[in-house]
Write a protein that binds this DNA or RNA. Structure first.
Length: 475
DNA sequence: AATTTTTACAACCGCCAATGG
DNA sequence: ACCATTGGCGGTTGTAAAAAT
Protein backbone atom coordinates (compact mmCIF):
# COMPACT_ATOMS: atom_id res chain seq x y z
CA UNK A 1 0.00 0.00 0.00
CA UNK A 2 1.26 3.38 -0.84
CA UNK A 3 2.34 5.37 2.13
CA UNK A 4 0.88 8.78 2.56
CA UNK A 5 3.02 10.44 5.10
CA UNK A 6 3.70 13.91 6.25
CA UNK A 7 6.96 14.32 4.51
CA UNK A 8 5.67 15.36 1.13
CA UNK A 9 7.76 12.74 -0.49
CA UNK A 10 8.27 12.96 -4.17
CA UNK A 11 7.59 9.92 -6.18
CA UNK A 12 10.43 8.94 -8.39
CA UNK A 13 8.03 7.31 -10.81
CA UNK A 14 7.29 10.67 -12.27
CA UNK A 15 10.73 11.30 -13.50
CA UNK A 16 10.70 12.31 -17.09
CA UNK A 17 6.97 12.03 -17.16
CA UNK A 18 6.50 15.20 -19.11
CA UNK A 19 3.85 17.72 -18.49
CA UNK A 20 0.57 16.99 -16.91
CA UNK A 21 -2.62 18.66 -17.83
CA UNK A 22 -0.96 21.57 -19.45
CA UNK A 23 1.23 22.36 -16.52
CA UNK A 24 4.83 23.24 -16.88
CA UNK A 25 7.85 21.24 -17.62
CA UNK A 26 9.00 18.42 -15.54
CA UNK A 27 12.20 19.00 -13.72
CA UNK A 28 12.98 15.34 -13.50
CA UNK A 29 12.49 15.16 -9.77
CA UNK A 30 8.79 14.55 -9.60
CA UNK A 31 7.99 18.19 -9.52
CA UNK A 32 6.85 20.59 -12.15
CA UNK A 33 7.09 24.28 -12.34
CA UNK A 34 3.98 26.28 -13.00
CA UNK A 35 3.62 29.99 -12.53
CA UNK A 36 6.96 29.99 -10.88
CA UNK A 37 5.93 27.39 -8.37
CA UNK A 38 7.18 23.89 -8.14
CA UNK A 39 4.30 21.52 -8.45
CA UNK A 40 4.51 18.26 -6.66
CA UNK A 41 3.60 14.93 -8.06
CA UNK A 42 3.20 11.55 -6.53
CA UNK A 43 1.36 10.51 -3.41
CA UNK A 44 -0.50 13.12 -1.46
CA UNK A 45 0.40 13.89 2.09
CA UNK A 46 -2.15 14.30 4.84
CA UNK A 47 -1.31 17.96 5.01
CA UNK A 48 -2.02 18.41 1.35
CA UNK A 49 -5.28 16.57 1.75
CA UNK A 50 -6.25 18.88 4.54
CA UNK A 51 -5.51 21.94 2.48
CA UNK A 52 -7.50 20.67 -0.44
CA UNK A 53 -10.42 19.55 1.69
CA UNK A 54 -10.57 22.86 3.40
CA UNK A 55 -10.50 24.68 0.12
CA UNK A 56 -13.34 22.65 -1.31
CA UNK A 57 -15.32 23.08 1.88
CA UNK A 58 -14.98 26.81 1.56
CA UNK A 59 -15.30 27.25 -2.17
CA UNK A 60 -16.95 24.16 -3.46
CA UNK A 61 -15.86 21.88 -6.23
CA UNK A 62 -14.59 23.11 -9.52
CA UNK A 63 -12.10 25.71 -10.60
CA UNK A 64 -9.38 23.36 -9.56
CA UNK A 65 -6.56 25.40 -10.87
CA UNK A 66 -7.55 28.07 -8.39
CA UNK A 67 -6.64 25.74 -5.57
CA UNK A 68 -2.99 26.09 -6.27
CA UNK A 69 -3.26 29.81 -6.76
CA UNK A 70 -5.31 30.46 -3.66
CA UNK A 71 -3.83 28.03 -1.22
CA UNK A 72 -0.29 27.64 -2.35
CA UNK A 73 -0.82 23.94 -2.58
CA UNK A 74 1.86 22.67 -4.90
CA UNK A 75 -0.49 20.58 -6.97
CA UNK A 76 -1.93 21.18 -10.37
CA UNK A 77 -5.65 21.55 -10.74
CA UNK A 78 -5.98 18.26 -12.40
CA UNK A 79 -4.31 16.50 -9.57
CA UNK A 80 -6.52 18.29 -7.08
CA UNK A 81 -9.65 17.29 -8.85
CA UNK A 82 -8.54 13.67 -8.97
CA UNK A 83 -7.54 13.62 -5.35
CA UNK A 84 -10.82 15.09 -4.30
CA UNK A 85 -12.92 12.85 -6.48
CA UNK A 86 -11.16 9.65 -5.59
CA UNK A 87 -10.23 10.13 -1.96
CA UNK A 88 -11.51 13.18 -0.22
CA UNK A 89 -15.06 13.80 -1.25
CA UNK A 90 -17.69 12.73 1.22
CA UNK A 91 -19.53 9.45 1.19
CA UNK A 92 -16.79 7.55 -0.50
CA UNK A 93 -16.87 3.87 0.17
CA UNK A 94 -13.62 2.22 0.99
CA UNK A 95 -12.70 -1.40 1.01
CA UNK A 96 -13.44 -4.32 -1.20
CA UNK A 97 -16.42 -4.43 -3.43
CA UNK A 98 -19.34 -6.37 -2.10
CA UNK A 99 -20.61 -9.31 -4.13
CA UNK A 100 -23.56 -7.18 -5.11
CA UNK A 101 -21.30 -4.44 -6.33
CA UNK A 102 -19.18 -6.90 -8.22
CA UNK A 103 -22.21 -8.27 -9.89
CA UNK A 104 -23.34 -4.83 -10.91
CA UNK A 105 -19.95 -4.04 -12.33
CA UNK A 106 -19.91 -7.21 -14.35
CA UNK A 107 -23.35 -6.62 -15.71
CA UNK A 108 -22.65 -3.00 -16.45
CA UNK A 109 -19.47 -3.88 -18.23
CA UNK A 110 -21.31 -6.44 -20.25
CA UNK A 111 -23.63 -3.72 -21.36
CA UNK A 112 -21.52 -0.64 -21.78
CA UNK A 113 -17.94 -1.78 -21.79
CA UNK A 114 -15.18 0.30 -20.30
CA UNK A 115 -17.32 3.22 -19.34
CA UNK A 116 -15.96 3.58 -15.86
CA UNK A 117 -17.45 6.91 -15.12
CA UNK A 118 -20.87 5.75 -16.14
CA UNK A 119 -20.49 2.67 -14.05
CA UNK A 120 -19.50 4.78 -11.09
CA UNK A 121 -22.77 6.63 -11.27
CA UNK A 122 -24.51 3.36 -10.58
CA UNK A 123 -22.34 2.50 -7.61
CA UNK A 124 -22.74 5.16 -4.96
CA UNK A 125 -19.56 5.88 -3.12
CA UNK A 126 -17.40 4.18 -5.68
CA UNK A 127 -15.10 5.93 -8.07
CA UNK A 128 -14.45 5.21 -11.68
CA UNK A 129 -10.87 4.54 -10.77
CA UNK A 130 -11.80 1.90 -8.26
CA UNK A 131 -14.08 0.22 -10.72
CA UNK A 132 -11.48 0.34 -13.42
CA UNK A 133 -8.88 -1.16 -11.15
CA UNK A 134 -11.22 -3.85 -10.03
CA UNK A 135 -12.11 -4.74 -13.56
CA UNK A 136 -8.56 -4.82 -14.80
CA UNK A 137 -7.60 -7.07 -11.95
CA UNK A 138 -10.50 -9.31 -12.69
CA UNK A 139 -9.56 -9.48 -16.33
CA UNK A 140 -6.04 -10.51 -15.53
CA UNK A 141 -7.11 -13.04 -12.97
CA UNK A 142 -9.65 -14.74 -15.12
CA UNK A 143 -7.45 -14.69 -18.11
CA UNK A 144 -4.78 -16.43 -16.21
CA UNK A 145 -7.22 -18.94 -14.85
CA UNK A 146 -8.66 -19.56 -18.24
CA UNK A 147 -12.12 -18.59 -17.21
CA UNK A 148 -14.66 -16.60 -19.12
CA UNK A 149 -14.70 -13.00 -18.22
CA UNK A 150 -18.40 -12.99 -17.73
CA UNK A 151 -20.38 -15.51 -15.77
CA UNK A 152 -22.62 -17.72 -17.86
CA UNK A 153 -25.72 -15.72 -17.25
CA UNK A 154 -24.19 -12.45 -18.34
CA UNK A 155 -23.64 -11.83 -21.98
CA UNK A 156 -21.83 -8.80 -23.26
CA UNK A 157 -24.19 -6.67 -25.25
CA UNK A 158 -22.02 -3.79 -26.13
CA UNK A 159 -20.58 -3.99 -29.57
CA UNK A 160 -18.84 -0.78 -30.33
CA UNK A 161 -15.64 -1.11 -28.46
CA UNK A 162 -15.38 -4.80 -29.03
CA UNK A 163 -14.22 -3.97 -32.46
CA UNK A 164 -12.09 -0.96 -31.88
CA UNK A 165 -9.17 -3.04 -30.84
CA UNK A 166 -8.99 -4.51 -34.28
CA UNK A 167 -9.85 -1.71 -36.54
CA UNK A 168 -6.49 -1.36 -38.05
CA UNK A 169 -6.78 -1.13 -41.81
CA UNK A 170 -6.05 -4.21 -43.78
CA UNK A 171 -5.22 -4.68 -47.39
CA UNK A 172 -8.72 -5.95 -47.88
CA UNK A 173 -10.60 -3.34 -46.02
CA UNK A 174 -8.21 -0.51 -45.81
CA UNK A 175 -10.78 2.03 -46.86
CA UNK A 176 -12.87 1.50 -43.81
CA UNK A 177 -12.76 4.00 -41.05
CA UNK A 178 -10.83 3.07 -38.04
CA UNK A 179 -10.99 4.06 -34.48
CA UNK A 180 -7.87 5.14 -32.75
CA UNK A 181 -9.14 4.06 -29.41
CA UNK A 182 -7.93 0.73 -28.21
CA UNK A 183 -9.71 -0.78 -25.33
CA UNK A 184 -9.16 -3.48 -22.86
CA UNK A 185 -11.51 -5.82 -24.52
CA UNK A 186 -10.85 -9.26 -23.38
CA UNK A 187 -10.41 -12.20 -25.60
CA UNK A 188 -10.39 -14.96 -23.18
CA UNK A 189 -7.47 -17.27 -23.14
CA UNK A 190 -8.62 -20.53 -21.82
CA UNK A 191 -6.52 -23.62 -21.63
CA UNK A 192 -8.15 -24.27 -24.93
CA UNK A 193 -7.22 -22.10 -27.79
CA UNK A 194 -10.25 -20.21 -28.76
CA UNK A 195 -10.70 -18.78 -32.17
CA UNK A 196 -12.85 -15.86 -31.36
CA UNK A 197 -14.99 -14.34 -33.96
CA UNK A 198 -15.69 -10.85 -32.85
CA UNK A 199 -13.50 -9.52 -35.53
CA UNK A 200 -13.51 -12.36 -37.86
CA UNK A 201 -15.82 -13.18 -40.65
CA UNK A 202 -18.96 -14.59 -39.24
CA UNK A 203 -18.73 -17.59 -41.45
CA UNK A 204 -15.72 -18.74 -39.59
CA UNK A 205 -16.06 -21.38 -37.07
CA UNK A 206 -15.35 -20.62 -33.55
CA UNK A 207 -12.89 -23.24 -32.70
CA UNK A 208 -11.31 -24.58 -29.63
CA UNK A 209 -8.04 -26.30 -29.90
CA UNK A 210 -6.10 -27.32 -26.91
CA UNK A 211 -2.93 -25.44 -27.02
CA UNK A 212 0.44 -26.92 -26.87
CA UNK A 213 1.38 -27.25 -23.27
CA UNK A 214 4.47 -25.55 -22.09
CA UNK A 215 7.68 -27.47 -22.28
CA UNK A 216 8.03 -29.78 -19.35
CA UNK A 217 8.13 -29.57 -16.51
CA UNK A 218 5.41 -29.48 -15.46
CA UNK A 219 3.14 -30.95 -18.08
CA UNK A 220 -0.42 -29.83 -18.30
CA UNK A 221 -3.42 -31.99 -18.64
CA UNK A 222 -4.95 -31.85 -22.06
CA UNK A 223 -7.27 -34.77 -22.14
CA UNK A 224 -10.44 -33.90 -23.79
CA UNK A 225 -13.62 -35.58 -22.76
CA UNK A 226 -15.89 -35.44 -25.69
CA UNK A 227 -18.86 -36.57 -23.72
CA UNK A 228 -18.77 -34.05 -21.00
CA UNK A 229 -17.61 -31.36 -23.33
CA UNK A 230 -20.29 -32.15 -25.81
CA UNK A 231 -23.04 -30.70 -23.76
CA UNK A 232 -24.01 -27.14 -23.71
CA UNK A 233 -27.21 -25.45 -22.96
CA UNK A 234 -28.48 -22.43 -24.76
CA UNK A 235 -27.27 -19.17 -23.41
CA UNK A 236 -29.07 -18.16 -20.28
CA UNK A 237 -31.15 -15.03 -20.15
CA UNK A 238 -29.31 -11.88 -20.87
CA UNK A 239 -29.76 -10.56 -17.43
CA UNK A 240 -29.53 -12.28 -14.17
CA UNK A 241 -32.44 -11.91 -11.81
CA UNK A 242 -30.74 -9.13 -9.97
CA UNK A 243 -29.91 -7.24 -13.08
CA UNK A 244 -33.06 -5.30 -12.51
CA UNK A 245 -30.95 -3.17 -10.27
CA UNK A 246 -29.35 -1.73 -13.34
CA UNK A 247 -31.15 1.27 -14.63
CA UNK A 248 -32.62 0.88 -18.03
CA UNK A 249 -30.78 3.96 -19.12
CA UNK A 250 -27.64 1.94 -19.06
CA UNK A 251 -28.84 -0.67 -21.39
CA UNK A 252 -27.45 -0.88 -24.81
CA UNK A 253 -26.69 2.37 -26.55
CA UNK A 254 -29.49 1.74 -28.94
CA UNK A 255 -31.88 2.09 -26.08
CA UNK A 256 -33.26 -1.37 -26.43
CA UNK A 257 -31.88 -4.61 -25.25
CA UNK A 258 -31.46 -7.04 -28.06
CA UNK A 259 -32.85 -10.46 -27.44
CA UNK A 260 -30.49 -13.36 -27.15
CA UNK A 261 -29.88 -15.15 -30.36
CA UNK A 262 -31.87 -18.28 -30.83
CA UNK A 263 -29.86 -21.40 -30.54
CA UNK A 264 -29.41 -23.60 -33.51
CA UNK A 265 -26.91 -26.25 -34.41
CA UNK A 266 -23.82 -24.83 -35.90
CA UNK A 267 -22.88 -26.66 -39.05
CA UNK A 268 -19.45 -28.08 -39.12
CA UNK A 269 -16.78 -26.78 -41.41
CA UNK A 270 -17.37 -29.86 -43.45
CA UNK A 271 -20.83 -28.67 -44.17
CA UNK A 272 -19.49 -25.59 -45.73
CA UNK A 273 -19.00 -25.63 -49.45
CA UNK A 274 -15.46 -26.32 -50.43
CA UNK A 275 -12.94 -25.10 -51.21
CA UNK A 276 -11.87 -23.40 -48.09
CA UNK A 277 -9.29 -20.84 -48.12
CA UNK A 278 -7.16 -20.36 -45.17
CA UNK A 279 -7.24 -18.10 -42.24
CA UNK A 280 -4.17 -16.91 -40.45
CA UNK A 281 -4.49 -18.60 -37.16
CA UNK A 282 -1.58 -17.23 -35.32
CA UNK A 283 1.75 -15.74 -35.88
CA UNK A 284 4.77 -17.77 -35.88
CA UNK A 285 6.39 -17.13 -32.58
CA UNK A 286 9.63 -15.39 -32.83
CA UNK A 287 10.87 -16.78 -29.60
CA UNK A 288 10.73 -20.48 -30.15
CA UNK A 289 13.54 -21.83 -28.13
CA UNK A 290 12.76 -25.46 -27.63
CA UNK A 291 12.57 -28.41 -29.91
CA UNK A 292 9.09 -29.11 -28.64
CA UNK A 293 7.88 -25.70 -29.65
CA UNK A 294 9.49 -26.03 -33.01
CA UNK A 295 7.91 -29.38 -33.58
CA UNK A 296 4.54 -28.10 -32.67
CA UNK A 297 4.54 -25.37 -35.24
CA UNK A 298 6.26 -27.26 -37.98
CA UNK A 299 5.12 -30.82 -37.73
CA UNK A 300 1.51 -30.37 -36.83
CA UNK A 301 -0.33 -31.03 -40.00
CA UNK A 302 -3.21 -28.88 -38.95
CA UNK A 303 -1.16 -25.77 -39.16
CA UNK A 304 0.69 -24.67 -42.13
CA UNK A 305 2.94 -21.77 -42.69
CA UNK A 306 1.47 -19.34 -45.13
CA UNK A 307 4.46 -18.50 -47.19
CA UNK A 308 2.54 -15.88 -49.06
CA UNK A 309 2.44 -13.84 -45.93
CA UNK A 310 5.48 -11.94 -44.96
CA UNK A 311 4.62 -12.13 -41.33
CA UNK A 312 4.87 -15.88 -40.95
CA UNK A 313 1.19 -16.49 -40.55
CA UNK A 314 0.10 -19.94 -39.75
CA UNK A 315 -3.11 -21.06 -41.25
CA UNK A 316 -5.95 -23.34 -40.53
CA UNK A 317 -7.15 -25.39 -43.44
CA UNK A 318 -10.60 -23.96 -43.28
CA UNK A 319 -11.68 -20.44 -43.20
CA UNK A 320 -13.58 -17.65 -44.67
CA UNK A 321 -13.36 -16.86 -48.32
CA UNK A 322 -10.62 -14.42 -47.62
CA UNK A 323 -7.49 -14.25 -45.67
CA UNK A 324 -7.26 -11.57 -43.12
CA UNK A 325 -4.16 -9.69 -42.52
CA UNK A 326 -2.46 -9.59 -39.25
CA UNK A 327 -1.49 -6.51 -37.46
CA UNK A 328 2.17 -5.96 -37.15
CA UNK A 329 3.81 -9.16 -36.27
CA UNK A 330 5.55 -9.11 -33.01
CA UNK A 331 6.40 -11.38 -30.23
CA UNK A 332 4.50 -9.04 -28.01
CA UNK A 333 1.32 -9.95 -29.77
CA UNK A 334 2.09 -13.53 -29.31
CA UNK A 335 2.94 -13.35 -25.70
CA UNK A 336 0.33 -10.97 -24.56
CA UNK A 337 -3.06 -12.28 -25.48
CA UNK A 338 -5.46 -9.60 -26.29
CA UNK A 339 -8.18 -8.99 -23.84
CA UNK A 340 -11.68 -9.24 -24.99
CA UNK A 341 -14.99 -10.37 -23.73
CA UNK A 342 -15.46 -13.99 -24.40
CA UNK A 343 -18.63 -15.82 -23.83
CA UNK A 344 -19.94 -19.13 -24.83
CA UNK A 345 -22.51 -20.49 -27.11
CA UNK A 346 -23.32 -23.94 -28.24
CA UNK A 347 -21.42 -25.52 -30.98
CA UNK A 348 -22.59 -28.69 -32.54
CA UNK A 349 -19.34 -30.46 -32.57
CA UNK A 350 -20.29 -34.04 -32.07
CA UNK A 351 -22.19 -35.12 -35.12
CA UNK A 352 -19.69 -36.16 -37.61
CA UNK A 353 -17.58 -33.09 -37.63
CA UNK A 354 -14.65 -34.95 -38.93
CA UNK A 355 -12.28 -32.08 -39.09
CA UNK A 356 -13.07 -30.80 -35.70
CA UNK A 357 -12.99 -34.23 -34.22
CA UNK A 358 -9.71 -34.87 -35.87
CA UNK A 359 -8.32 -31.74 -34.45
CA UNK A 360 -9.58 -32.52 -31.04
CA UNK A 361 -8.21 -36.01 -31.19
CA UNK A 362 -4.97 -34.67 -32.40
CA UNK A 363 -4.86 -32.18 -29.62
CA UNK A 364 -5.71 -34.92 -27.22
CA UNK A 365 -2.90 -37.02 -28.51
CA UNK A 366 -0.53 -34.13 -28.26
CA UNK A 367 -1.69 -33.50 -24.78
CA UNK A 368 -1.35 -37.07 -23.72
CA UNK A 369 2.07 -37.19 -25.18
CA UNK A 370 3.15 -34.01 -23.55
CA UNK A 371 1.57 -34.98 -20.31
CA UNK A 372 3.10 -38.34 -20.09
CA UNK A 373 -0.28 -39.87 -19.47
CA UNK A 374 -0.85 -37.90 -16.35
CA UNK A 375 -3.93 -35.86 -15.77
CA UNK A 376 -5.38 -33.51 -13.33
CA UNK A 377 -2.81 -31.22 -11.99
CA UNK A 378 -4.84 -28.56 -10.39
CA UNK A 379 -3.05 -25.33 -9.81
CA UNK A 380 -3.14 -24.27 -6.27
CA UNK A 381 -5.30 -21.32 -6.92
CA UNK A 382 -7.98 -23.50 -8.35
CA UNK A 383 -8.48 -25.10 -4.99
CA UNK A 384 -9.49 -22.00 -3.18
CA UNK A 385 -13.12 -21.36 -2.61
CA UNK A 386 -13.48 -18.08 -4.38
CA UNK A 387 -16.23 -16.43 -6.23
CA UNK A 388 -14.86 -17.55 -9.52
CA UNK A 389 -15.01 -21.11 -8.34
CA UNK A 390 -18.64 -20.70 -7.62
CA UNK A 391 -19.19 -19.22 -11.01
CA UNK A 392 -17.27 -22.03 -12.53
CA UNK A 393 -19.30 -24.57 -10.68
CA UNK A 394 -22.47 -23.01 -11.91
CA UNK A 395 -21.08 -22.87 -15.36
CA UNK A 396 -20.17 -26.52 -15.32
CA UNK A 397 -23.61 -27.34 -14.12
CA UNK A 398 -25.20 -25.45 -16.94
CA UNK A 399 -23.04 -27.18 -19.44
CA UNK A 400 -23.48 -30.67 -18.22
CA UNK A 401 -27.10 -30.87 -17.41
CA UNK A 402 -28.31 -30.92 -20.97
CA UNK A 403 -28.06 -33.55 -23.62
CA UNK A 404 -24.79 -34.57 -25.19
CA UNK A 405 -25.30 -32.76 -28.42
CA UNK A 406 -23.15 -29.77 -28.48
CA UNK A 407 -19.85 -28.56 -27.35
CA UNK A 408 -19.05 -25.34 -25.69
CA UNK A 409 -17.26 -22.92 -27.91
CA UNK A 410 -16.03 -19.55 -26.98
CA UNK A 411 -16.58 -16.64 -29.22
CA UNK A 412 -16.80 -13.00 -28.63
CA UNK A 413 -19.97 -11.94 -30.12
CA UNK A 414 -22.60 -12.75 -32.61
CA UNK A 415 -22.72 -10.93 -35.83
CA UNK A 416 -24.53 -7.86 -34.81
CA UNK A 417 -25.21 -4.36 -35.81
CA UNK A 418 -23.79 -1.26 -34.28
CA UNK A 419 -26.38 -1.29 -31.59
CA UNK A 420 -25.26 -4.66 -30.46
CA UNK A 421 -28.28 -6.37 -31.86
CA UNK A 422 -27.65 -9.88 -32.83
CA UNK A 423 -28.46 -11.28 -36.15
CA UNK A 424 -30.08 -14.08 -34.28
CA UNK A 425 -28.27 -16.79 -36.13
CA UNK A 426 -25.22 -18.83 -35.69
CA UNK A 427 -22.20 -17.45 -37.45
CA UNK A 428 -22.05 -20.34 -39.82
CA UNK A 429 -25.57 -19.64 -40.95
CA UNK A 430 -24.59 -16.26 -42.22
CA UNK A 431 -24.12 -16.02 -45.92
CA UNK A 432 -21.03 -14.61 -47.43
CA UNK A 433 -22.89 -11.57 -48.55
CA UNK A 434 -24.20 -10.99 -45.12
CA UNK A 435 -20.82 -11.57 -43.74
CA UNK A 436 -19.36 -8.96 -45.98
CA UNK A 437 -22.11 -6.65 -44.88
CA UNK A 438 -21.18 -7.27 -41.32
CA UNK A 439 -17.62 -6.52 -42.14
CA UNK A 440 -18.67 -3.33 -43.79
CA UNK A 441 -20.81 -2.33 -40.90
CA UNK A 442 -18.16 -2.88 -38.35
CA UNK A 443 -15.08 -2.15 -40.27
CA UNK A 444 -13.74 -5.41 -39.06
CA UNK A 445 -10.58 -5.13 -40.94
CA UNK A 446 -8.20 -7.38 -39.25
CA UNK A 447 -7.58 -9.28 -36.15
CA UNK A 448 -4.70 -10.71 -34.39
CA UNK A 449 -4.92 -14.44 -34.33
CA UNK A 450 -1.91 -14.55 -32.17
CA UNK A 451 -3.73 -12.50 -29.66
CA UNK A 452 -6.60 -14.85 -29.69
CA UNK A 453 -5.07 -18.19 -30.03
CA UNK A 454 -1.94 -18.61 -28.15
CA UNK A 455 -1.50 -18.39 -24.48
CA UNK A 456 1.49 -16.48 -23.49
CA UNK A 457 4.49 -18.58 -23.19
CA UNK A 458 5.17 -16.92 -19.94
CA UNK A 459 1.70 -17.62 -18.72
CA UNK A 460 1.78 -21.13 -20.04
CA UNK A 461 4.92 -21.75 -18.13
CA UNK A 462 3.69 -20.20 -15.01
CA UNK A 463 2.20 -22.30 -12.34
CA UNK A 464 -1.02 -20.45 -12.42
CA UNK A 465 -2.23 -21.71 -15.74
CA UNK A 466 -5.40 -23.61 -15.18
CA UNK A 467 -5.59 -27.22 -16.06
CA UNK A 468 -8.25 -28.66 -18.25
CA UNK A 469 -10.01 -29.69 -15.14
CA UNK A 470 -10.85 -26.12 -14.65
CA UNK A 471 -12.57 -25.81 -17.93
CA UNK A 472 -16.08 -27.07 -18.29
CA UNK A 473 -16.33 -30.03 -20.51
CA UNK A 474 -12.72 -30.90 -20.28
CA UNK A 475 -11.63 -33.57 -17.97
C1' DA B 1 13.24 -17.80 5.33
C1' DA B 2 14.12 -15.94 0.97
C1' DT B 3 12.56 -15.03 -3.41
C1' DT B 4 9.19 -14.43 -6.89
C1' DT B 5 4.69 -13.47 -8.44
C1' DT B 6 0.27 -11.48 -7.98
C1' DT B 7 -2.87 -8.15 -6.28
C1' DA B 8 -4.67 -3.80 -5.02
C1' DC B 9 -4.31 0.71 -5.25
C1' DA B 10 -2.96 5.44 -6.31
C1' DA B 11 -1.60 8.54 -9.44
C1' DC B 12 -0.15 10.16 -13.86
C1' DC B 13 -0.62 10.70 -18.92
C1' DG B 14 -2.73 11.92 -23.15
C1' DC B 15 -6.72 12.88 -25.47
C1' DC B 16 -10.89 15.22 -26.10
C1' DA B 17 -14.99 18.06 -25.47
C1' DA B 18 -16.95 21.99 -23.36
C1' DT B 19 -16.44 26.60 -22.22
C1' DG B 20 -15.26 31.31 -22.35
C1' DG B 21 -12.59 35.24 -23.92
C1' DA C 1 -13.78 31.62 -35.97
C1' DC C 2 -9.98 30.91 -33.25
C1' DC C 3 -7.49 29.84 -29.25
C1' DA C 4 -6.51 28.84 -24.44
C1' DT C 5 -8.17 26.89 -20.41
C1' DT C 6 -10.56 23.61 -17.82
C1' DG C 7 -12.53 19.39 -16.57
C1' DG C 8 -13.53 14.64 -17.59
C1' DC C 9 -12.40 10.19 -19.14
C1' DG C 10 -9.97 5.99 -20.10
C1' DG C 11 -5.44 3.84 -20.38
C1' DT C 12 -1.23 2.97 -18.23
C1' DT C 13 2.31 2.70 -14.83
C1' DG C 14 4.64 2.32 -10.34
C1' DT C 15 4.77 0.43 -5.86
C1' DA C 16 3.73 -1.77 -1.41
C1' DA C 17 1.44 -5.60 0.46
C1' DA C 18 -0.02 -10.15 0.13
C1' DA C 19 0.31 -14.59 -1.63
C1' DA C 20 2.72 -18.20 -3.71
C1' DT C 21 6.79 -20.81 -4.55
Amino acid sequence: MMMIGENNQVNAQNEGGGSSGGSGMSNGSGEERESGMMLKKGPWSAAEDAVLAEYVRAHGEGNWNAVQKNTGLARCGKSCRLRWANHLRPNLKKGAFSPEEERIIIELHAQIGNKWARMATQLPGRTDNEIKNYWNTRVKRRQRQGLPLYPPDVRPLYSDHLYRRYLQPSPLLSSRPTSPTPTSCFSFQTPIMSLHTSTMPSTLHPLHIPHRPPPPPPPQNFLYNRHSAATMRPPPPLHSPNSASIPSSLHSPSGSTPPPPPISPLPSPHNQPAPFQTLPLFEYPTSITTAADYDFFHSNKRFKLDESQSNNSFMLPFSHEQNYSLPSSSSKNLHQPHLDSGFFYPFNGSSGDGLLEDMLQEAQALAAEANGGRNKELPKEMNSATQHDQEEEEYSRLINEDGPTSMGMAINEWPCNDSGESSGRQPSAITDNENQLALDMHGMASFSPADHILPTHAAARSSSVGSWDNFPGIC
